[in-house]
Design a protein around this nucleic acid. Structure first.
Lengths: 369, 369
DNA sequence: ATGAAAGCGCTAACAT
DNA sequence: ATGTTAGCGCTTTCAT
């Protein structure tokens, strides 16, 4: 976008060379060829093509014309080698194929693409990794990208520090990391909002499906924050959450299914009348499992999720929606600012709002339909 | 994976330098530093670190030790500049956040990552683009990546040819392109299988929800191939498909919804008893719309999709499943072969199998439950 | 088995 | 406003 884009180069091929412009597509075209064709020096060509000042208008036009004719495109490797900038951002994420992550990537790519940046995708180990954190090779990363977007990745201290020392800007999405810019939702408020909704419907026996086994004390606090909001809201209502109604589900559909079966199979434990699921995918699994047990949703059981998943309306799922694609856009802009801006700026944390969407999977207590 | 990974570099920082190894993380460490620390020349370090022959075992160990101690990582830009290889593959896709694409990317990333390649994500205009095709700047791409994966992207002839002339291997997924390697499903058979299933259940009035408006005559033939399979199977059964039951839906949920409402609102046209949707997402939209009209699925209407979407079982959706993640893996391997292999090899097209999954959204004709 | 030297394609000083 | 020169950090002949 920001770079001059040569056309699909309708090079006069095959026929005898009329002039320098008719090089076959296969032959390498460097800045010296453009210089020769335009009659200027490589330095001037470089300046002209990058829109730098100190080039006369006529020269710029001539250079651009020559470059377009030859189908010239500067070598990213060469310019990265000398400028130290790669025009590429990296994005590290535990999954690409989960809705939340792909939606964030989508939003980020939109902004990066418009700014002329490429996007490099780095996989990282899943959070179920026993190490409980993520180590990235900062020197490797640093030489490939101008900045990094970390999606729900609780980078371990060492990775963080080395990244900072190398002056690679990092912006997080979904997790707050001390000293880094980030885009976040207030997950405690999310937990409170969902719980408040269920309480208002008359529910008292509410289960939490999430991932609060405490193994993620390193920064990946999404689930625990939501759980805390749940507990606080319950206590504010004068209720003490039943520990037996906390179920570890991870963030997956399978996890939601399994959790539901578990919570309805505890001998001597009264089942819940409502479930607050840590994500829409967990909620979907729970709905599926509930129906497979012959339970009516919301007649016998109300279920609410979190995310505003693209497909949530198909399940008529009540949810606390967050602007996921926007988070990608915002994070991308934060990263661009850090790279484009003059000096290193203090980390800024952007908190995005959420919205309770009341749909059909939550209903008043005791109103079997 | 294939590269020596320096540890998180527990560099003795802050304290007075005991030796060369204790450089602060911030200072640049190049091959000359490693050479100095190990007592060999840069050339030998380069050879040792890349596992090239002609280096004694003891030297190799010494060099590796020095590199690890210093936390050295070679500059990709510098080596790309000289070797012409970037150790990066590109993947062009119209969407990242649609299930099919993210699943393919997932599979490809798995293979690329294990082979030590990075993955660059390129967005392209959506297929609804009036141009009906995609133009990519081959010179720009060529200097950034060693190969390209094109997902359901009917690249226009010019893009293709320039890519080939530049010797950039391209592998397609989902669409066959003359002269290129690719991974495909036999979409005509997919259409036949779905239709056969519905016919076997007694349905005769079957609608096709897809995208056969004929605008994609440039290679994006997924929908038309499935439509053709549908027609052929119908004719084989002695039935002539009703043109009024062909509905353009694209590949989206919204499209499926809209198509269903349309097909049930045509004055004087008998509605279908079954729908063959070109994708699971279209089928999901159709199910949702059908239920919102008070229709029972499959009591009043059977619906089958295509894909084997991760969430399809939640809808109890019958579908012709394709191994999506595997297609990403296979395509990635094809690309690796082309890059790693000796000479240019002839394009190979891999056809992957599909599987009819009978679930609850399809049922026998006239058995309202 | 190892080293010295040249250079990949570009950009950034420093001329002019 | 434009050209000349040097060099980014590696890899690769070509010597030794």
């Amino acid at each position: 976008m920001s770079e001059p884009e040569p056309p699909a180069s309708p090079v006069t091929n095959g026929s005898p060379a009329a002039e320098i412009g008719s090089l076959p597509l296969g032959s390498p075209i460097g800045i010296v060829e453009v210089a020769a064709a335009s009659g200027f020096s490589p330095a001037t060509v470089s300046r002209a093509l990058r829109g730098l000042p100190g080039v006369s208008a006529s020269t710029r036009v001539a250079v651009e014309k020559a470059a377009a004719t030859l189908g010239y495109f500067p070598s990213p490797s060469a310019s990265a080698l000398i400028t130290g900038r790669t025009n590429t951002f990296g994005i590290v994420a535990p999954w690409v194929s989960r809705w939340f992550f792909s939606a964030v990537i989508d939003g980020a790519q939109e902004v990066f693409g418009a700014a002329g940046y490429d996007l490099l995708l780095y996989p990282v180990a899943t959070p179920s990794d026993p190490r409980g954190g993520y180590v990235i090779n900062s020197r490797a990363i640093g030489k490939r990208v101008d900045g990094l977007l970390a999606l729900n990745v609780p980078l371990m201290d060492s990775s963080l520090h080395s990244l900072q020392t190398l002056h690679i800007p990092v912006v997080t999405v979904g997790t707050a990391v001390q000293g880094l810019s980030g885009v976040l939702v207030d997950n405690e408020q999310v937990g409170r909002a969902a719980t408040r909704h269920l309480l208002a419907l008359g529910h008292r026996r509410i289960a939490f499906f999430g991932d609060d086994d405490g193994s993620h004390t390193d920064g990946f606090t999404v689930a625990t924050d939501r759980a805390r909001g749940f507990e606080l809201e319950m206590r504010d209502a004068g209720l003490e959450p039943d520990p037996q109604l906390f179920q570890v589900s991870g963030f997956s559909i399978d996890g939601g299914e399994a959790a539901l079966h578990r919570v309805f199979s505890q001998p001597g434990v009264a089942p819940p009348t409502a479930i607050f699921a840590v994500s829409d995918e967990v909620a979907m699994g729970a709905i599926y499992a509930a129906r497979s047990r012959g339970l009516s949703v919301p007649g016998d059981l109300s279920i609410i999720g979190v995310d505003g998943h693209d497909l949530s309306y198909l399940f008529d799922l009540s949810t606390v929606a967050q602007p996921v694609k926007d988070q990608g856009r915002i994070a991308a802009r934060l990263l661009l600012e850090q790279v484009t801006g003059p000096g290193p700026r203090p980390p800024s944390v952007v908190s995005v709002g959420t919205e309770l969407i009341r749909r059909g999977t939550t209903g008043p207590l005791g109103v079997a339909r």
